[in-house]
C-alpha cells in the first residue's frame, strides 16, 4: 500500500539527517518512529537534524513522535535540531511549546554547522 509519508535518512559523520516528505499523522507516525529508532540505536550518530522542507502536513501525532525521538537522543547525550519548516508545521511547534526546547534553522547546512559547534 502506498504510504503518504517518505522517510529519507542520511548520515553525515556523527549527525543523522532525517528528511520527511509528505504527511505526518497518526497513521504514518510509526514509520518515523521505527526508522529513526533503528538508525539511532544501530548507527553511530550523536545528533539528529530533522529536515522538514517537504513535510506538507503534521498534526499532534507528529509532535508526539518527534518529542519521543528528542527524548531518546537527549537521553544519549545528543541534540536534535529542526530545519526548513513550512509555516503550518512551524505553527504547531510554536503552539505546543516544542519551539522552546528544540533549535530551529533555515537550512540543513546551517543546522549541521550549528551542531558541530556544540559537539
Amino acid at each position: 500500500m502506498k504510504m503518504s509519508l517518505q522517510v529519507e535518512l542520511e548520515q553525515q559523520r556523527n549527525v543523522l539527517i532525517v528528511r520527511l516528505r509528505g504527511e505526518l499523522d497518526h497513521h504514518t507516525a510509526d514509520i518515523v518512529r521505527y526508522k529513526m529508532e533503528d538508525a539511532i540505536l544501530r548507527g553511530r550518530c550523536d545528533h539528529v537534524v530533522l529536515s522538514l522542507k517537504d513535510l506538507q502536513f503534521m498534526d499532534s501525532s507528529g509532535l508526539g513522535v518527534i518529542l519521543g525521538r528528542y527524548k531518546l537522543i537527549k537521553g544519549r547525550g545528543g541534540k536534535m535540531v529542526v530545519c526548513d519548516t513550512q509555516p503550518s508545521v512551524k505553527r504547531l511547534f510554536e503552539l505546543s511549546g516544542l519551539f522552546k526546547i528544540l533549535s530551529f534553522y533555515d537550512s540543513e547546512r546551517s543546522a549541521v554547522a550549528g551542531l558541530e559547534v556544540v559537539s
Partner: peptide, 14 residues
C-alpha cells in the same frame, strides 16, 4: 504509552 503529545484538544480549541 502510545507517545501521544496531549495537544489534540489544545490545537482544536486554538
Amino acid at each position: 504509552e502510545l507517545e501521544r503529545s496531549g495537544m489534540g484538544f489544545t490545537i482544536m480549541e486554538n
